[in-house]
C-alpha cells in the first residue's frame, strides 16, 4: 500500500507522563497505519494508553518520540499553529458529548460548519441543518443540549464533528454514556456517515457488542499495540 493513501502513519511512537522520578511511560513503540476510509476499532483495558494515543494523533499533545504522520504531515516538532490548523481537518467525538451548553443543537453543529473556509453564513447554516437531518434530529434543531437525551446529544456531537468535513474521525468511547441499544445505533450511524464522506475512523471502545462495525480491530495492552485479524 502506497504511503500517500495512508491517513495516519505512526512509527515507533512512545510517550511519557510526569517528570523525574514520577516519569512513567504509557506508550511503548506503537506502530499503526490507517488507510483512507478505513474504520479501525481500538480496544484494551482501562489505563493502557488508548486516550493518549488518540490525543497524539489528534494533534492535541506534543509528540515526544517517534513519528506521527497525519495527512502526510509530521507531527513531531510541529508548532502550535500547525497543530491547530491540522485539527480543523480532524473530527473528534468525546466520551462526554462536550456540546456548548449555551447553543442550540443547530448552533452547535454550525460551530463545526463555521470552520469551513469560503462558505457564506446561510450555506453553513443549511449544512448544519442537513447534518442534523442525517443524524435524525431535524425536529430538535432549536433545542438546547440540556433538553436532549444522551443519545441525541451524542448524535449532535457526531453531526458537529462531520460538519467540518474531516477526513479523519477520532472517537473516544462515544457510547460510554449510552445504553447498549442507543450505543449501537450511534456507532452504526457514525460508520455510515463516515463511509459516505470517505472519512477514516479510529474509535476507542470497550463495548464488545459494537466490534463488528470495524474493518479492523487493534488491541492495546500496557502501551503496546497488537493487531487483531478480524
Amino acid at each position: 500500500m502506497g504511503k500517500s493513501s495512508l491517513t495516519v502513519d505512526i512509527h515507533a511512537l512512545s510517550h511519557w507522563y510526569g517528570k523525574g522520578s514520577t516519569r512513567r511511560q504509557v506508550l511503548q513503540g506503537v506502530d499503526l497505519q490507517i488507510s483512507a476510509g478505513e474504520v479501525v476499532l481500538l480496544t484494551g483495558p482501562s489505563g493502557c494508553g488508548k486516550t493518549t494515543l488518540l490525543t497524539l494523533i489528534g494533534a492535541l499533545r506534543k509528540v515526544q518520540e517517534g513519528d506521527v504522520d497525519v495527512f502526510g504531515q509530521q507531527l513531531r516538532g510541529a508548532a502550535r499553529g500547525q497543530r491547530q490548523r491540522l485539527r480543523r481537518r480532524i473530527g473528534m467525538i468525546f466520551q462526554g458529548h462536550n456540546l456548548l451548553r449555551c447553543l442550540t443543537a443547530e448552533q452547535n453543529v454550525q460551530m463545526g460548519a463555521d470552520l469551513l473556509p469560503n462558505l457564506g453564513y446561510r450555506a453553513r447554516r443549511d449544512q448544519a441543518r442537513e447534518w442534523l437531518r442525517s443524524v435524525g434530529l431535524e425536529d430538535e434543531l432549536g433545542k438546547l443540549p440540556h433538553d436532549l437525551s444522551g443519545g441525541q446529544k451524542q448524535r449532535v456531537a457526531i453531526a458537529r464533528a462531520l460538519a467540518a468535513k474531516p477526513k479523519l474521525l477520532l472517537a473516544d468511547e462515544p457510547t460510554a454514556a449510552l445504553d447498549s441499544g442507543t450505543g449501537r445505533e450511534v456507532v452504526e450511524l457514525l460508520k455510515r456517515l463516515a463511509r459516505e464522506q470517505s472519512c477514516s475512523v479510529l474509535m476507542v471502545t470497550h463495548d464488545p457488542r459494537i466490534l463488528d462495525v470495524a474493518d479492523r480491530l487493534v488491541r492495546m495492552e500496557d502501551g503496546r499495540l497488537y493487531q487483531t485479524i478480524s
Binding site: G58, L60, Q84, R85, L86, R87, R88, R89, I90, M92, F94, N98, L100, R101, M111, G112, L115, R160, A164
Partner: peptide, 12 residues
C-alpha cells in the same frame, strides 16, 4: 471545557 472543545475542533 467548552473552550477546550472548540480548541480541539481547530478554533484559534
Amino acid at each position: 471545557p467548552e473552550y477546550a472543545t472548540l480548541m480541539a475542533m481547530g478554533y484559534k
